[in-house]
């Protein structure tokens, strides 16, 4: 697969998703790019904005095995990972819904930390260890989670370690009125449109390898590192907002997300190389969930996106590498 074919595939996938999902162009691209990078995505938005619909549609378009888990407070790890069941004289492992290419973890913050933590190994190492046995997850393995930022009662905020495993965190905003009208047209009259599968798991893996092979100038690698370093309040490169409101900055996974996501976006744009513009594009979705803000930020109403913007302003472009 070459970059042109990559862009063609993604454009086709986006078009198919667009048959179901009205608007949300950036969100769709974000999810598609994350899928191409074999990265996990956390979608955050109020109920009813189509988060679950988007991910379900994505499963159909990508034509991969789709598993859905509705996270609730009483959900147990075994309900996700699977369990051993006595069958005859032997215990046989019954795979949970996580053994799928695309796992929709709906309202992930409603599960207890114990259950949330069950995803840690699976998301990072793409395997499940149960009863001393390790089970490899299929490739591609994508966790697409949703969470509601409003309802705090009966929810368990994801721990930093869990958040860090998501390649992107996408914010799902309310669609403009025209899009709402279009949604109404599509959902209140006649049968809903079914998307076609335009890709498969093998294509996703191939595209993922292409993303990794895409060249990136060393100045851009330094730039990504600089941006991440600048999110740390103790760094000299950190802008004032970071020093004031951030308790912990992004991890190296943040820099990985900047480069990988940027490369995918570059290919999406038909370019055979990473650009600073790609990094700027993925910076908010890559870094916002990796910043641990202090209580001052909560008190002053400062959001992570503001801080990421401040970091980008402080370091507007890559510098030549000596």
């Amino acid at each position: 697969m070459n970059p042109e074919e990559f862009a063609t595939h993604l454009a086709a996938a986006r078009a198919e998703v667009g048959k179901v999902i009205v608007g949300q162009k950036d969100l769709v691209e974000t999810v598609l790019v994350a899928a191409i990078c074999e990265g996990h995505v956390l979608l955050e938005g109020v109920p009813g904005l189509g988060k679950t619909k988007l991910l379900a549609t994505l499963g159909k378009v990508l034509d991969v095995e789709f598993g859905r888990v509705q996270f609730t407070p009483d959900l147990m790890p075994a309900d996700i990972l699977g369990t051993k069941v006595l069958t005859g004289n032997d215990f046989k492992f019954h795979q949970g819904p996580i053994f799928a290419n695309l796992v929709l973890a709906d309202e992930i913050n409603r599960a207890t930390p114990k259950t949330q933590s069950a995803l840690l190994e699976a998301m990072q190492e793409r395997r499940v260890t149960l009863g001393g046995e390790t089970h490899q997850l299929p490739r591609p393995f994508l966790v697409m989670a949703t969470q509601n930022p409003i309802e705090q009662e009966g929810t368990y905020p994801l721990p930093e370690a869990q958040l860090d495993r998501f390649l992107f965190k996408a914010l799902v905003g309310f669609p403009p009125a025209d899009d709402v009208v279009e949604i109404l047209k599509r959902t209140t009259a006649g049968p809903e449109t079914e998307p076609n599968a335009v890709m498969d798991g093998a294509a996703i893996v191939e595209m993922s390898e292409l993303v990794r092979d895409l060249p990136a100038g060393s100045h851009l690698l330094h730039y990504a590192a600089t941006l991440v370093e600048a999110t740390h309040p103790e760094s000299e490169k950190a802008p004032e907002l970071v020093k004031r409101y951030v308790r912990n900055g992004a991890s190296p996974r943040g820099a990985q997300a900047l480069i990988l996501g940027g490369k995918a976006f570059a290919l999406f744009a038909g370019r055979p190389n990473l650009a600073a513009e790609d990094i700027w594009k993925v910076a908010p979705m890559s870094l916002r969930h990796r910043l641990v803000l202090g209580y001052e930020a909560l008190a002053d109403g400062v959001r992570a996106d503001q801080i990421v913007s401040e970091v980008l302003e402080a370091h507007p472009s890559p510098q030549p590498v000596s």
């Binding site: 092979d213 100038g217 100045h219 055979p272």
Partner: peptide, 23 residues
């Protein structure tokens, strides 16, 4: 879009893979 700066760096490589030559 960093084509030139990347090309300047890649051009100095003794060995390049397919996508680097493409770039």
């Amino acid at each position: 879009f960093d084509r030139i700066s990347t090309a300047l760096e890649l051009g100095a490589l003794d060995e390049r893979h397919e996508y680097e030559d493409l770039q």
